[in-house]
Design a protein around this nucleic acid. Sequence first.
DNA 1: TTTCAACACGAAAACGTTTGCGAAATTAAT
DNA 2: ATTAATTTCGCAAACGTTTTCGTGTTGAAA
Lengths: 347, 347
Amino acid sequence: MRKTVTLKQIARELDVSVSTVSKALRDSAEISDDTKEKVQAFAKLYNYKPNNIALSLKNRKTKTIGVIIPEIVHYFFSKVIYGIENKALEKGYNVIIGLSNESFDNEVINMETLANGSIDGFILSLSKETLLKQDFHHLNETINQGMPLVLFDRASDKVDCDKVIIDDAHAAQTAVQKLLDCGCRSIALITTEDHVSVGQMRTQGYCAKLVSEGFEIDDQVILKIEDPKDSEERLELLEKTIEDLLHLKPDIDGILAVNELYAVTAMKIARKLDLKIPDDIQIIGFTDGVLSRHSTPSLSTICQNAEMMGERAAEMLIDRIEQEDDEPVYETVIVPINLIERESTKS
Amino acid sequence: MRKTVTLKQIARELDVSVSTVSKALRDSAEISDDTKEKVQAFAKLYNYKPNNIALSLKNRKTKTIGVIIPEIVHYFFSKVIYGIENKALEKGYNVIIGLSNESFDNEVINMETLANGSIDGFILSLSKETLLKQDFHHLNETINQGMPLVLFDRASDKVDCDKVIIDDAHAAQTAVQKLLDCGCRSIALITTEDHVSVGQMRTQGYCAKLVSEGFEIDDQVILKIEDPKDSEERLELLEKTIEDLLHLKPDIDGILAVNELYAVTAMKIARKLDLKIPDDIQIIGFTDGVLSRHSTPSLSTICQNAEMMGERAAEMLIDRIEQEDDEPVYETVIVPINLIERESTKS
DNA sequence: TTTCAACACGAAAACGTTTGCGAAATTAAT
DNA sequence: ATTAATTTCGCAAACGTTTTCGTGTTGAAA
């Protein structure tokens, strides 16, 4: 077992000083070619690699960014991480992951354990509980300590920092427009409860577009669902709610769902009720994940370009870290969305 | 903007030495109650938190584990990370993620950048390319440096270290047994190419069970597929391959697929050919992910208990880190699997 | 022979901690 | 009043780097 070798050990072996070794390895002009060669050969032989922790301490830079997300077993978030990782690798940064599990406390704890020197900046998407409590003191404190922070997807106006989001209202409008274009005259919405910022914005967009096209908003066809996650009972509740709706309002011919799961569940119920997709009812979801692509029929959906969000967020953060401006002007990047048309809508 | 305060700054403010501050904060008996109170109050006021990097350097422990996985946009792997994260949090460790993207070089690079002091140990699942090349020098070097390593799911006999795996052959046998029990007499297999260790083991299990039950192995009903991933063409190729098979061998009444995607694709083709599931053909997949649960019909599948794998891997690694035995006896943990019966098989 | 560059290297400080040990100051005992 | 014991604190080293600055050596110019 050969532990990693340090400058000091090389210095002792070669009977020179630590500073000489350091300089020799960095090819300093101060050192003679002879010793340089000697040191470099020895270092290569023993596979010397500078200790990152020591470098971090010296440079007061860790070259590491902290990412805190609500969940990881989730197509959108894992794709964002993928984007972050790629950009980080390219720029020589590591990524350390924290999971809030949609809990405010976990979010706070995660930030605290990382903010003590372990990382150079944060990329974060707010937990549902945080959104519900509207308590952002941990974020503002972090920013106040001079630690850069980029919020993505689930952001808040109450936090002044860089952001990477999509225009959720506009995305919903695009989807509604598509359904209208394809002949729908009664469009239902399956969304989350209002405290989830993106759900709320999507609901707004849905309403705005309908109104602007001369339709009335029927609250009965707007389903606000608690996130079923993996829980079996909630999923059944979701199914029942949708089924009730389709019975109550048999003229519904279009459904917009704010995520994949709601959308495929709606398709499942439609099929159960012998409604043909897309002939009798058309469906559009959000998130171009594995469900959308591989369900039958495949699902038309709003793609949020998660990977691009991750890349942009990492880019912004790293820029911020490396310029270290005391009075930064924060930016909000709106990542474009696109509607992917598949079998659940007419073409 | 209030930067984080250090011991030195507190010492200067309070006109005591750094060591006094440190001891006071750690409630040392060496320090008088007076100064302790004074220091602690000041520290709380200025929200002092010890710098993690300095601690890491001093203790030669980072309290961080490095996880390297082939992909993150993947139900199984993200679920494993979830398990790792939970256990790590519980034990006071952070998790830093590296993605190999199934590439040997990326795997090596990731390990090298993390092995220089940034982490206390690795959890890793081998990339396909590494499996193909059978080159494990980077792993063995890491182990040789005294850095603990736990391999999960995709492991290799050529690397001597702790492992967390499932009994893939046995899992496949269980699935085949179920299909046989449910009346299947001609079972096809959709698997990966042989260099992916788990695919190979599953193929072995499939064959072994069929032989032991008196069936002959028909190579024509064993489809070895290149991973289609997100590529559209490959997915179409997969579909065509399956369709050809079902035309060629119309008596096939059961399919075992080594992952979710192959399984739902098979279901899609079956439906296209007007085969009723599970009446005409029954299907079992691997990985209890979102596709299995939400496809129609829902998919019977082998659940690998990914979260448990993650937890056990983290546990093993942290134990290894904290005991630092020079001549460790490595263990291999076999995580139990279970067959989840849903609508794609008869009951 | 003296003086001065140029060259090659080492000492030390710094990053922020913790900790063993010595020293000063105070209190107690003789 | 002297000594001993106790309390309270600071110094310094250590973790592994990088970098500034100083110093000693060499060779050449005067």
